[in-house]
């Protein structure tokens, strides 16, 4: 039950994009097209899950015993960036079809705020391994949900008559605001 509430809280109540402003660069960059946003959502979820597993191991078996927790930020950034590079190489070699579909997104998320934030939050709240994984999967799916919703809205918007100065980024921000407002309705549903 505890894991379930954590999961729901990460997907909906504390949605990372809409309540914490994380991952906005790709959220606005890739949400112009529905297919691309689905790919991005899946890529972020998988990278986030794998990298928080890795980061959990490094944090609890290397940084904590050696008293190096002040280096967490630097270690995690390098860890995730190199891990994503490695993942890219493996996928390119082993599954070229998958690489053609999602490969470009992998590089974009190598140094992304939301991918870095989850391991940092896991370390900060000293979650157990299983809890970290649940949290990472939930946050990833929350991100996917937000970006897919946003892309569907923006595809509709293509036919709309938007005031000229607001075209592009301006209206995208206002839309995100409306979405965030809708998600505010969930706040307080689960308190951790």
């Amino acid at each position: 039950m505890e894991y379930f509430t954590l999961f729901i809280s990460a997907v909906i109540v504390n949605n990372f994009v809409l309540t914490k402003f994380l991952g906005l660069c790709i959220f606005f960059g890739v949400s112009k097209n529905l297919n691309a946003s689905i790919g991005m959502g899946m890529a972020v979820t998988s990278v986030m899950t794998l990298s928080s597993m890795l980061a959990w191991v490094v944090y609890n078996f290397a940084l904590v015993p050696l008293n190096l927790t002040f280096m967490t930020t630097a270690v995690f950034v390098l860890l995730i960036a190199s891990f994503v590079q490695l993942l890219e190489m493996i996928i390119k070699k082993q599954a070229p079809a998958l690489y053609n579909m999602w490969g470009i997104y992998l590089l974009l998320i190598a140094t992304n705020c939301v991918v870095l934030a989850i391991p940092l939050l896991n370390a900060e709240s000293s979650f157990s391994f299983l809890k970290s994984v649940v949290y990472a999967v939930g946050s990833g799916l929350g991100f996917a949900l937000a970006i897919i919703l946003m892309a569907s809205l923006r595809e509709k918007l293509r036919l709309a008559d938007v005031p000229k100065p607001l075209e592009g980024l301006g209206i995208a921000f206002i839309l995100a605001g409306m979405l965030a407002l809708a998600f505010t309705g969930f706040s307080g549903m689960i308190t951790l």
């Binding site: 809409l18 309540t19 914490k20 402003f21 005031p163 100065p165 607001l166 980024l169 301006g170 209206i171 995208a172 921000f173 206002i174 839309l175 995100a176 605001g177 409306m178 965030a180 407002l181 505010t184």
Partner: peptide
């Protein structure tokens, strides 16, 4: 209260981006 919530932040930034664009144009 909405201005302190994330939603208000997004909406305000949207208008500011638009305003800045108008100004530069």
């Amino acid at each position: 209260l909405i201005m302190i919530l994330p939603a208000g932040g997004f909406i305000l930034i949207g208008y500011l981006v638009g305003g800045f664009k108008m100004l530069t144009e």
